[in-house]
Amino acid sequence: MTVGSQVKTVLASLKNIEATLDILSQKTQDSEAKQVYQQTSQIIHEVKTDMHAQVQILQNEEPQYDT
């Protein structure tokens, strides 16, 4: 696996995490838990944005692997 595809895998996992956290925050009955899930989802979102930018950079660096 190239670095590019590895980072892409992490990006996909992050998307999954964010979505699951959003579902949990919708389902929970407890306002405190809801807040924690949303807060975590927010952090994951920030990380996701950074990783997305990183994927762009890597794609420019390794165009030969980009399909």
Partner: peptide
């Protein structure tokens, strides 16, 4: 720098959640 700062962020998130 991007990787390590984000990894720290995730670390904090893990601790909270």
């Amino acid at each position: 720098q991007v990787y390590s700062s984000n990894s720290k962020k995730l670390d904090k998130a893990i601790e909270v959640v």
